[in-house]
Design a protein around this nucleic acid. Structure first.
Lengths: 227, 227
DNA sequence: CGTGTGTTTGAACCACTTCAACCCAAGTGG
DNA sequence: CCACTTGGGTTGAAGTGGTTCAAACACACG
């Protein structure tokens, strides 16, 4: 780990929420310490459920999955975090889920302020953290609808549109995660994910160049499938 | 609607997070306007998806459900809000889900500050709102695990333990919501919920006095079922 | 060029849904 | 005061979407 010039407000996601946070940061940047950059290999753990939550993180490159496990090993990935995303902010002293790098990745870690930002009211409470938490909550609410009420094809369609929006360049997306990860995110088995993708491929809705390079050929059809 | 003596920090839930927020409030109570009390009949709408998010709310009595709908009417209830719970805080200008009273209920509404708390950094950013949002996020993460990976009996066991913790008095709980609401919360049909409850009744794990008055007779068994 | 991890595809199974009937308690009105 | 309705809730029987188990395939990497 090394210190680096990595202010919390750099590389903000292109959302109105984060944009607002970014602007605000300029008025009180000294409140946000620079973070340390951490390079991670594929599948490397960033923190585990129950670990002391001394830091929170921003993805700089690659992707991170956060998840919970049941005692018998069933896993639910609650979110994939892509460059610019902030994760690991906790209500209490411990992390309530685990985080791992999906592939090789770099994250920037930020120490929870000595004058604990959540436990003080002295004027430098990080608005940007509020925006990050609200964004996470919004995504979680959408995801509960998916997990509770959408069928397999609707889930995969939603996933493809989400990933297309978040990481497509030049109409093509390079998925960083394997089929099992996708399944554990969507509440499906990896086989069901594979079958849905094959069907969409067969219908010409998407094209493959390798299992993880996908180009959407008919976004409107996907939107219709998404219910 | 009528104005009333209802500070945001009253009737706080017995969680460490909220407790901390409550304490902090004492140091800057003037930043939090008193709210207006609103009485609601069963099934009355508090706000709908897409409505302008001019207020957020705290439950004073009864229960509130927040939910999203798919185009064909499938519904996912993302949370039940009980007395002391805060709901309706949004990242943007619009509500991203709907809220209705489960039975007769009263809520206190708080106007989003003129000097918008989320868009200002002038020293009175509401720490209590941060706590409320973090609590919602924590519950959402637990619920995603339930919806994505637990089977029907595990879901019902989790639900019973949660409701027991949140609203039991003298070992007995009076559920405010019908079987359909429970199903839409747990991602199941009402019939599956009914069958699971009947089975637990048959096994002596719980007792009924009327369909909604439930007493847990063997919490440990339920915890074991909860995976 | 072989080995291993990830992906696809097939076939049987099953947990939950769907559809339907019935029950029960609380109104409502003749 | 009793027939009728209405809104839950329970239970049964059949159907099915997704899982499970299994095998083949493909491509990246030493």
């Amino acid at each position: 780990m090394q210190t680096a010039d990595a202010p919390l407000n750099s590389h903000a996601a292109p959302s109105a929420v984060i944009q607002r946070g970014t602007q605000l940061m300029r008025s009180a940047p000294e409140a946000f310490a620079l973070g340390s950059v951490r390079r991670l290999a594929k599948d490397e753990e960033i923190f585990g459920e129950g670990d002391r939550a001394a830091f929170f993180y921003k993805v700089q490159s690659g992707a991170v999955r956060t998840f919970k496990l049941l005692s018998d090993g069933r896993r639910q990935i609650d979110a994939f975090h892509l460059p610019g995303d902030i994760f690991g902010i906790e209500p209490g002293e411990e992390h309530r889920f685990s985080a791992e790098a999906v592939g090789d990745a770099t994250v920037v870690s930020y120490r929870r302020s000595n004058r604990n930002a959540q436990a003080q009211n002295d004027g430098d409470i990080p608005t940007l953290m509020m925006s990050a938490v609200l964004l996470s909550l919004m995504r979680a609410q959408n995801h509960m609808l998916l997990l509770g009420r959408k069928n397999a094809m609707e889930r995969v369609a939603t996933f493809l549109l989400e990933m297309d929006r978040r990481l497509a360049v030049a109409g093509m997306m390079a998925l960083p995660m394997c089929r099992r990860d996708i399944g554990d995110y969507l509440g499906l088995t990896l086989e069901t994910v594979s079958r849905a993708l094959s069907q969409l491929h067969g219908e010409g809705v998407l094209g493959f160049s390798g299992a993880r390079q996908i180009v959407l050929r008919n976004r409107q059809r996907l939107r219709n499938m998404d219910a």
